[in-house]
Simulated scan of single mutants.
Amino acid sequence: MLTKARKRAPTMERRELLSVADPEGQKDPMSHLNKTKVIMFVFSGLTHNEQLAPFLFTFFLNVYLVCVVFNFGMMFIVLKASNLHTPMYYFLSYLSLVDLFYSSVIAPKMLADLMSKIKLISFHGCAVQFFCFDVLVVTEALLLSCMAYDRYVAICCPLLYVSVMTNKKCWSLVFLSFSIGFLQSVVQTSCVFSLEFCGPNLIDHFYCDVPPLLHLACSSTLWCNSITFFFVVVCGVGSLMPILVSYTFIVSSILQIKSSKGRQKAFGTCSSHLMCVSIFYGAVFFIYLHPPNSALQIQDKLASVFYTVMIPMLNPLIYSMRNQEVKRVIKKVLHIHH
């Protein structure tokens, strides 16, 4: 009898693991196996085309390397160039820091999965990835909002700029941005990963995000859907409104400038920021606020790639190419090393 029990144990273990790692495991008629907690998730990844994968790997590896170099470079330039020790570049250096980290939360795993046949991530690894990404994305949105306020004070109240945008105020705004990002991520992560995941474990994405995770949950997701919608609206719209209000006053002030050269100079100081804002919020609202539709699945992944990998690379590029102060510092640094 003991021998028979030992022979049957591995079979039961294999069936239990099947219910964890294979969506087909949910068909097991034994109810206690159906309640087995998922310990691993499987990503569908960017593509199922094995011939396309090496090209995508090479392309996104280069994108990620450029992202790392340019964001590190931007932080280094702001730190070393004394003429860039102003609130605008203080916020920009933190934006580069956030871009660097939030790209690194997604890109390395995505690159590894492009060259893997089975794209696995542990339950806890998924929770950590989701938490970090959620913190950083919301922090980025709030930093963009802070930068819009800074441009408003600089253009609409230039005589008060030094007294309004003090070091203490800048530090407080950055601290508030990170704090809000952290707290809302704690709530969302706790909500999503307290759900029961006992059946299919295939995440139809290349990273852990709210919609595909809620789709896999065995328990009711009404509360989590409500919380997600609440934070998207509050953090998304709440950070976008100060930007829209700031630029309404900025445009009004610029139009009152009589000389065309003065208008061009004033607009040039905020054009880079406006471009970054448009790209970021366009991608965010496309991903999270359109109604569920299977026909948009491919477009969703493309938008997510742009949002998670391309934007962190584009932000420092836009600022370095369109901002005259940054361009002068870069030329000076290159000239010295040359």
Rank of each mutant, 00 (worst) to 15 (best):
T3K: 13
T3H: 11
T3E: 13
A5Q: 15
A9C: 02
A9S: 12
M12K: 14
E16L: 14
L17N: 10
V20N: 11
V20Y: 00
A21M: 15
Q26C: 04
K27H: 12
K27V: 02
P29L: 06
S31D: 08
V38Q: 06
V38L: 08
F43T: 03
F43P: 00
N49R: 08
Q51P: 02
Q51M: 09
L56M: 15
T58C: 14
F60E: 00
C67D: 11
V68Y: 06
F70S: 15
N71M: 07
F76L: 14
L79C: 10
N83M: 05
H85M: 04
Y89M: 00
Y94C: 11
L95N: 05
D99K: 02
D99M: 08
S104G: 11
L111A: 06
A112I: 13
S116L: 09
S116K: 13
I118R: 14
K119F: 03
K119D: 06
S122A: 05
H124V: 07
A127K: 12
Q129A: 07
Q129L: 03
F131H: 10
L136W: 00
V137N: 05
V137R: 07
E140F: 01
R151S: 06
L159C: 04
Y161S: 15
M165H: 02
M165I: 03
K169N: 08
K169C: 06
W171M: 13
W171S: 12
V174H: 05
F175K: 10
I180Q: 04
I180W: 05
G181Y: 03
L183T: 11
L183P: 01
L183H: 04
L183V: 13
S185E: 05
V186S: 07
V187H: 08
V187S: 07
Q188I: 02
T189S: 09
V192C: 10
S194W: 08
E196N: 15
E196Q: 11
P200G: 15
L202C: 10
D204N: 14
D209P: 00
L213C: 03
L222G: 13
N225R: 07
N225Q: 13
V233M: 00
V233A: 00
C235L: 11
V237K: 00
M241W: 03
V245T: 09
T248R: 12
S259C: 03
S259N: 07
S259V: 02
K261C: 03
K265S: 01
T269N: 11
T269C: 08
S272T: 03
M275Q: 10
V277K: 01
F280M: 14
Y281S: 10
Y281H: 14
A283E: 09
A283Y: 04
F285R: 06
I287V: 13
P292S: 06
P292Y: 05
I298Q: 12
K301M: 10
L302Q: 12
Y307F: 13
T308A: 11
M310P: 00
I311M: 01
M313Y: 05
L314S: 08
L314M: 12
P316G: 09
P316L: 04
Y319M: 12
N323A: 02
E325D: 15
V326D: 06
V326L: 15
K327Q: 13
R328H: 13
K332L: 12
L334M: 14
I336W: 07
H337I: 15
